[in-house]
Design a protein around this nucleic acid. Structure first.
Lengths: 214, 214, 214, 214
DNA sequence: GATGAATGAGAGTTCATTCAT
DNA sequence: GATGAATGAACTCTCATTCAT
């Protein structure tokens, strides 16, 4: 009897919906992110993730094929969602300078005392450093950086130059690299030094940047 | 008589000189630095360092008590010597703006295609990220950053303010943090993205910074 | 419905029972005991235990956290069970002198040609010698000796003195120490010298001891 | 000139006398004994002995060919000298019972709070336990035990039986084994348990033993 | 699908012994 | 003879991954 029931279960289409699986994956990923932040990718063990997530080891390997894949997706998942939030905010602004100022403000107003927020930054920058040795990470990050980050600024600057808000002799691509260099620099300092006066430093960078454009 | 001779024998100087030992240590450290750059601290094994340095495992452990100590000293040794070179250069300049410009130029003119140079940057930033989880590294870096990096800029800015070169309403400490934030940002990008146009981006940062001061 | 089923799945009993794990641990411990006897604690390697037990290295470390823990439990497990057997035997005897005689007889009739038996004695006395340098072992053994061995004799002697079987001017505690000193001495000789005539020597000790009490 | 002098030194017969070498060896051995007592044979390293003795590693290997040889000689040297002292004392006594009593008293009056004394006992019993696994140690100890310890008692007992001091139906060899079993037992307890009331326990053993003989 | 016991290659570290100086 | 830097095999322990249940 019981056997029959089990067979029936096996025959019906997946009992758990795709949505359910996606939710489970996200649970694992957010646990993993915290573990990676706490110990670093290499030092965090699958057992740490098992313990923190409450999933069994086998279950996790049903969702992901390796620790590396979890790492990849954990970083990707979280940085992507952050990026989309920002894009929505920018769409509501009209001038290029406002948009750039808003981007700075996003980082200035970020709450870096929130552990989850800080964890994400830690793991993200560790991940980025890995790109020196891992071609897969390197190409992924380069593409992502170009498509999502660099072109975002390039577009805003070009639009600003067209409208006359921004000086025309400035190279948009270089400005984009300068912009993200500043953001990365402040972020690294925040992650690295709990006493870093990031609000004031980032505000100065914003003033410098905006003054330079006009 | 015999006793005297024996005492002489006992007094012979060490078979190898202190210089010899220091040189050997440096050999190991520079090999280790390359290994750490190539694979990262965790992934680089003692066997890698053995192979790359040509020393036997036991020999390395005669000079250092652990892999961690090698890591610490490899980063320390190299970043310290770099820092001293910079300080000498600055001493030859008279105005504060020249000094700050010179600091920017040092990074702008750095040859990041030199593998040894690049290795040092890679390992240094990995080391800095470790400070999130390693209190020993954190306190070492915080003290070092304050004493060597922050105070360097603070002194220059205060001198410039006294001489009237730099606006008096700017906070020297925040400026120092802003300055190093920019340098860190550009450096991280260089390490992370081989195509980063660091000369141009750093030059823009320099222009922004100098313009902001005056 | 689906939720209920899932909860049921989550509630399944552990894949292997507690009994299974206890049995596995005992298998490892008895293998380890043989290895420790054969080579001594320091000289016996985890690889020896791996080979002798048939478990993989990882499996052993799933059950025990270190070689030291295996050592501790291997000695403890076996000496404890021996001790309980003896206590049961004594409970069936009525007079104090019979009980003491029975204790001697237990050691006299012990089969020291049985390798497992001999291994236990060897490892136990090595373990005891360790107590000179290992505070953890020392405090464990001292407590155990007091609670299990000394008080056993003290109780028997006091009972015998109350009943008039044993002279009242003898100090029970000292007698206990004398008793176990004799047993330890004979045991060390057995372990150390395969030709030791332990049956006859222990019998003489027994006669001396019993004669002294009355 | 200097070269000539050195050659002269090389040509003369050994500058250091045999006595000098024996003294140096003894220095090393007594340092080694302390190291072995402190950490155990396996755990004590050559570096420990180097540090404790003040000799260089090379020097030690000039006197002894291996750590094992040092161990062997350290135990042998010290236990032998102890044994000779005892023999001298016994020669001054006339009756067998006095001699046996004197032997007990030697151990009763031994100062086990003297670290050097305790170290010797510790190392000696560890050495004896090694005999289970080391045929070389086993045969050495068996011969030594027979020649020095067992025959000592056998001779005394036989002499006592001849004189009528000791009962004739007692087997001298078994008595010898019983005697040393008791001494070993008390000694093991002393080494193992700092609170062992060895004076009282050994005195009881002595009384039992003497009473049994007559 | 879920579980967690089992695997075993590979990590960092130690140390008795050697031998060029 | 004396020195101590060098050696490298061997040690304990870890952990990503698998797979029988």
């Amino acid at each position: 009897m019981i056997a029959t029931q089990e067979e029936e279960v096996a025959d019906v289409p997946p009992v758990v919906s795709e949505d359910y699986k996606v939710k489970k994956k996200q649970e694992i990923l957010s646990s993993a992110l915290i573990c990676f932040a706490k110990k670093g990718y290499q030092q965090a063990t699958m057992d740490d993730i098992v313990e923190h997530s409450g999933f069994s080891k086998g279950a996790i390997y049903n969702y992901f094929k390796s620790k590396e894949e979890i790492y990849f997706e954990a970083v990707n998942e979280n940085t992507s969602s952050m990026h989309n939030t920002v894009k929505d905010k920018l769409a509501q602004l009209s001038t290029s300078l406002d948009k750039l100022a808003c981007l700075f403000d996003t980082y200035i107003n970020n709450d870096h005392s929130d552990p989850a927020e800080k964890a994400l930054f830690q793991v993200y920058y560790e991940f980025r450093l890995q790109s020196c040795r891992d071609e897969k990470i390197a190409s992924y990050l380069t593409r992502r950086r170009q498509e999502s980050f660099i072109s975002l600024i390039v577009d805003i600057v070009q639009e600003g130059q067209k409208k006359g808000e921004i000086q025309n002799d400035l190279e948009p691509l270089i400005l984009a690299h300068t912009f993200w260099g500043m953001i990365d620099g402040a972020s690294i300092c925040i992650v690295t030094d709990p006493a870093y006066p990031y609000k004031q430093a980032l505000s100065q960078m914003k003033e410098m940047f905006v003054a330079y454009l006009t």
